[in-house]
Design a protein around this nucleic acid. Sequence first.
DNA 1: CCAATTGGCACTAATCTAGAGCTAATCGAA
DNA 2: TTCGATTAGCTCTAGATTAGTGCCAATTGG
Lengths: 168, 168
Amino acid sequence: MLKLTKRTEYGLIALVHLADQATLAPAGEPVPVVSARAIGDLFPVPRRLLAEALKQLQQDGIVNSTRGAHGGYRLSRAATEISLGEVISSLEGEPSLTSCAGLGAAGSNHSCEVEPVCPIRSPLARLRTGIWTLFEGITLQSLTDRAIDPNALFAGVAEENDGFSATG
Amino acid sequence: MLKLTKRTEYGLIALVHLADQATLAPAGEPVPVVSARAIGDLFPVPRRLLAEALKQLQQDGIVNSTRGAHGGYRLSRAATEISLGEVISSLEGEPSLTSCAGLGAAGSNHSCEVEPVCPIRSPLARLRTGIWTLFEGITLQSLTDRAIDPNALFAGVAEENDGFSATG
DNA sequence: CCAATTGGCACTAATCTAGAGCTAATCGAA
DNA sequence: TTCGATTAGCTCTAGATTAGTGCCAATTGG
């Protein structure tokens, strides 16, 4: 199915909340730390899965974590510097769209039997890149804005993307 | 996972092949009929699943089927008149992206507990629409072209979409 | 009648998802 | 030091989804 996992939803909810909190903080100061428990109290989502999502986001450098009492999470960067693509890549892996194609379309070393004659690999690879570019062009900040201009979501889509530096 | 199902892959392979065959036919004549067996002989994909995908496409009016000996499938329309969105919608349902949101964002009658406070529903609903619009703007014909201009894939993305007429 | 084909139903096995349980490590405060 | 709150890591289970197969009916042409 072409659907995000719950983990990704929960992670996005947490990130949007963290972005909100960061906005409220005075500039110059480090953004406030919010615990998974606090987020779980605000939104009716299972705390454990919320914590798992946040842990994953921490491992991929999207949030910083502080352990111990009064610990929690905060965005590692400004919300304008975090792309939806980066978040989705962290929480559910790179969207491959088809089973055969990893993102490295050039040095494909996988075992797709169809490849030599597959009539859709190349077109779908580009489509995949297109969706990915769409995600890359959407910042966490733009998700935070409640009343969003739909066209703003597509900024960057028409531009070519030559790498996925946010992932590795 | 943000991935198409095998059924969709197989269906797309079949459709691209059917589009190729239709291109070879002289204009004015009905396009040739290709059996699932023939497609299964060309591409190393399970025939049964190929047939299932084609059956689904038939039920949604994307291909026409002929039963009996020398039966098979052919595109119901020109490849330029079949959108990728229509195909994906047929083969794996409307891409909902999040678990809560059906496409009818207005009269949402579902049971998402997060909804009253969900900070991502509205933005992701627009993102979903964006992806859908992306799919709608890609024709089967453009998938058939082997060397495709990446930017061509994004035609129609920046335009607003007020309906999903291709689906029903 | 016979062979080829689509159409429909049920079934199994593998994979993925959602969620919970448990424990260790870390930190602040009493 | 002791204790509570928190993140971090691991395993486990149940459910849903996906991939694939089997079987047979209906249709069509020879």
